[in-house]
Amino acid sequence: MSTVRVGTAQPRQRRPRASVWRVFAMPALLLVASIAGLVLGLTGDGLPDALSWALLSIPIILAAIAFARRG
């Protein structure tokens, strides 16, 4: 990608660009956890349900952590 102007902000050191794989590592994990949780819940009562609740809570908990740490 060639250079592109971004407003008039001060020149600063930027974070290096992460690869697409790195950017999507966490989202992919969350996607798999969510879908596994949704399907597991269908496979029975008891343990599968508990696993389903745990897996589906991961995205909610991670979002809550991000909000708690924002700044």
Partner: peptide, 18 residues
């Protein structure tokens, strides 16, 4: 999701700039 990739390349997961 497609737009998320280029946008987040310089931000760690979970960044909320306030």
């Amino acid at each position: 999701v497609v737009l998320y990739a280029p946008f987040m390349r310089r931000l760690p997961f979970g960044t909320l700039r306030t």
